[in-house]
Design a protein around this nucleic acid. Structure first.
Lengths: 212, 212, 212, 212
DNA sequence: CATGAATGAGCCTTCATTCAT
DNA sequence: TATGAATGAAGGCTCATTCAT
């Protein structure tokens, strides 16, 4: 996963790098639960600190503003996403590869439902620079699917012609995956994640296959 | 558009029904602008009143809590949506009918981008009962497409078998339409709404057509 | 008292001008007591509100920051100063006039000891623009004495030649007056304000008279 | 310089006396810069430690409270003052001696402008006992001039009669010297320190000479 | 002795809501 | 009905101080 974007650093007073990582992980995992329950705005910094397992003072040793917590959460999500997607092969140019990618991506989202839902609803609460950083990450995910689909086109397994259409198809897959999280009230009553994955794969592949 | 859901009433001190409607329209149109710019939480009631064109005291004559404003906005959106979608024919069972419905729905979203974006991001800020009301409205929209697709299936123009798959397809259409609003940073650089509609229609119809 | 300096306005949410004046007077007189006891930094906004006789929320309807309170206090001091000094005649060019001016100025300071002490100690806590405004006011007071002394020089009652020396003399008088307030621990044990005034007048006038 | 006042000791955890002195000098010189820039209250202990060149933990090995730092600074100022003024001769009873004392005192203040300004503005932030200690030091400075003037009176070079008037004159000199520091915005545009010293000496001596 | 991470009381400020006019 | 001044709970954040290493 090419990451040519510089990470935006969050100010800290603490020097010990490894401690920073430990504490920020505590912050993130506490915050995810909290934001999921009450949303970013209704969660107080005191609650965030408590959920992380330490005092408000300590929280602020590792961040500078409450928004930093949201950013830390978002950034952490993408770190995990790209780590887990890094095992996906993207160069074979076979439909099997595409199906596998969809499957892995959908299962990833299922296991990070809370995180994705937060991101969908709260990204707008980030300051502009951090928002852009998140959008970049989203586009990287789109790129992943673009690449796989493009390879399938080049190998003749798919017939979509224009780059635009490939871009659209990639976006569709990314969005439909995330819909599993942000639209769970509509979907999770009717499907298990496996059913959802299977049905979406079938529908999308038919679309791509017979595209003309 | 069958509305078997009771509207949830917002308490008011004012008796004059027609005045209530006038004032609430003022509230909603001011609030949409405001929420779009700063989000629901960052907009203050003072600002809402100002945007509506009257004083904070008057605002509170027509609502009981700030959340009521958000609900008023959301409810208003769906009123418009169903009013504009009510002209769609849903019973012919032809692909043309489906294509037309998609076109109308997508163009509706394009003309209400701000409103849809707000709804997507802020619904979670509503109290639970109002959230459910909104979800119902969403499901009504899904139903609309389910109906059209089901008719196509029955008339033999589409071959999707299971109800589940029809439900999924309808959801996909609803979500992809809304994606035009909530994912505008990714889509509106690459497409006009016409291009987006055409490409999505093509892709989705291929998917539905050759579904097997 | 020529006031060619624009007053720096303090933001308020309240529209009723006369109410603003009433409330700000409450704020100022409460704050003077408070700042005198504990200094600006140790006084909390809650205490300021309480001393003013209303709630913290109301306080913030009439100011925007805590520093505004300090500015209001300082500004109010000079308003009173110039109002009370406006009765001083400055054009006769007699030593009597000078003596009278000193007497009035010193008695003014005595009756506003607290206010002057606060100003002396806390002006540095104001933001730069407000600090400059205060310095301007100080210089206006210096100007007052410059004018009187200059007239005495022109009428031949005093023999100081250079403008620089007149400026210095005027500053000396202004400072020695204020010393009665900020150095009270050293002076008020040994003098009443009348004694202090008489002795300072005598000493300074001898200095000015025999300046050579 | 008779120091019959006991120094108020600042608690420390460290035993090594010479180390204490080294560290406290570091503290003082860092703090002077800092307090001059932002004032005592806005400077944080972290910043003080950093300016001193060591960690916050170490800072607290040498002081007990933040106020101790302010006291250390103040005390240090007077140590320097009395050290430099100790070369002044106070017993000749000549006007030359008085002029020289003024000159040395004013030049001292000029070279310690920052320190004196801090003292003037922040002494009130000290706890009462330390404030009194500082006031004593101030009075010692007054005494110095009282002594010189008294000698001049006894030797017939000056004619001021009462002790009270001598006290006042001494206070005036002390204050006018310090005014060079705390009123620099009004004086340093118009005078160099030499000009200021010359003019003040001239004016004050005329005052004292012809006092009657 | 030196370090710096941890603590939490407490500060300034905001803002939804009320109510007298 | 309309107004807007008043309220105070609650929130984000700071920073003096401690203490284990």
């Amino acid at each position: 996963m090419p990451e040519n974007e510089e990470k935006i650093l969050v100010q800290t007073n603490v020097k010990d790098e490894s401690l920073i990582e430990i504490r920020r992980n505590q912050i993130v995992s506490g915050a995810v639960k909290l934001f999921r329950e009450k949303g970013f705005h209704r969660a107080t910094t005191r609650e965030i600190a408590k959920a992380a397992g330490f005092s408000i003072g300590t929280l602020y040793e590792y961040i500078r503003t409450k928004e930093d917590v949201l950013y830390l959460v978002s950034d952490n999500i993408y770190d995990q996403v790209f780590q887990r997607l890094s095992t996906i092969s993207t160069s074979k140019g076979t439909l099997e590869e595409l199906k596998l990618a969809i499957k892995q991506y959908f299962s990833l989202i299922d296991s990070m439902k809370d995180e994705f839902t937060i991101m969908y609803q709260e990204t707008k609460s980030l300051p502009k620079d951090k928002q852009h950083y998140i959008f970049q990450k989203e586009l990287e995910m789109v790129s992943l699917f673009e690449k796989i689909i493009t390879n399938c086109v080049q190998s003749g397994e798919l017939k979509i012609a224009s780059k635009q259409e490939i871009y659209l198809a990639a976006n569709l897959l990314v969005v439909q995956g995330q819909a599993w999280a942000f639209r769970k009230w509509a979907l999770q009553k009717h499907f298990t994640i496996e059913e959802y994955t299977r049905a979406q794969t079938k529908m999308c592949l038919s679309g791509l296959l017979h595209f003309e």
